[in-house]
């Protein structure tokens, strides 16, 4: 069961449609809440996640617009306010649309046209560069005198049902993170790392630590055909395994800064241990120390 927490009700409605499409499981329970502001999300989200966990929910999507702010700082804010107090760090996918979730809508003008045939929205190559995509779309609708006018609360979820997932993933990294995280939650997601590797073009994403630990048992060492691969867990840390060279660990500290560490040698047991430690709530700085010691 997946719970979605968003800063606005329309964002929740939109994410519910998208997560349902990406997870490709119509029977899966998807619940959640859209708050009235990001402040309310941060203030009340932790309690709601705890409640959801008590009710058996095991996956969480938490969405907070970047709104001109640094995305990593927002991830840290969400982690401190919601996932860490509720103990759901490893179960949560924190999504920070740049600037707003409407950037995803803007990324696929054809989906908008399908929803409102009179709305000939122009293609936007880099929707995350648009300062206020919500205002941009609604202004374009008004100036184009579309019928009906675009209204985000009504039309975002409708457009979400038609979005070209691959196209939006290419244009919006924040959306790609959602896709990669939710795909990894699919029960049918193949466990062998190499298959994932091939699917994601050299990088393996999974917010599910236990799945990664299981996958490590089946891990094939990088070889000439698969020169590198990486494991990404919950968006907060990343472990890359490079061909016969080193492991690169990329972590985010509590203050939002990132730490990189390389090891000249590695064993799969090292990776498994690190993942298990991270799952227990090990902080980036501590892990770095652990790594150095090992």
């Amino acid at each position: 069961m997946i719970a979605i927490l968003a800063e606005a009700r329309s964002d929740f409605d939109t994410l519910r449609v998208l997560v349902r499409r990406i997870i490709a499981d119509k029977s899966l329970t998807i619940a959640g809440k859209g708050y009235t502001s990001c402040d309310e999300l941060c203030r009340k989200g932790g309690g709601l996640v705890t409640s959801f966990m008590q009710r058996g929910f095991s996956r969480f999507v938490i969405c907070h617009d970047s709104d001109n702010n640094d995305s990593l700082a927002i991830v840290t804010k969400i982690r401190n306010a919601i996932t860490r107090p509720s103990g759901s760090c490893s179960l949560s996918c924190i999504i920070v649309p740049v600037q707003e979730i409407e950037a995803w809508i803007l990324a696929d003008e054809m989906a908008v046209r399908t929803t409102i045939p009179t709305f000939q929205l122009c293609e936007t190559l880099h929707p995350e560069n648009v300062q206020s995509p919500k205002e941009y779309i609604e202004r374009a609708s008004r100036s184009g005198r579309t019928s009906p006018l675009y209204s985000h609360a009504i039309h975002n979820p409708k457009v979400a049902a038609h979005l070209d997932i691959a196209k939006v993933s290419r244009k919006c990294p924040s959306f790609r993170h959602l896709v990669q995280s939710v795909v990894a939650w699919r029960p049918s997601t193949p466990a062998p790392v190499v298959e994932l590797h091939q699917r994601w073009g050299g990088i393996i994403y999974s917010p599910d630590d236990s799945a990664i630990v299981r996958a490590i048992d089946d891990l094939q060492y990088p070889d000439d055909d698969h020169p590198s691969c990486a494991l990404v867990c919950a968006g907060a840390y990343r472990i890359e395994i490079h061909h016969k060279c080193y492991i690169l660990i990329d972590l985010q500290n509590d203050d939002g800064t990132r730490v990189n560490a390389r090891s000249p040698q590695y064993e799969l047991a090292d990776i498994k241990r690190i993942v298990i430690e991270l799952r227990r709530g090990l902080r980036a700085s501590d892990l770095w120390r652990t790594w150095e010691m090992s």
């Binding site: 329309s10 609708s141 008004r142 209204s151 985000h152 609360a153 009504i154």
Partner: peptide
């Protein structure tokens, strides 16, 4: 409530004119 939320958003969309 969920519908009135959308209705209010809709009214806001048309509130320029």
């Amino acid at each position: 409530l969920s519908v009135i939320h959308k209705v209010l958003s809709l009214l806001r969309s048309y509130s320029q004119s």
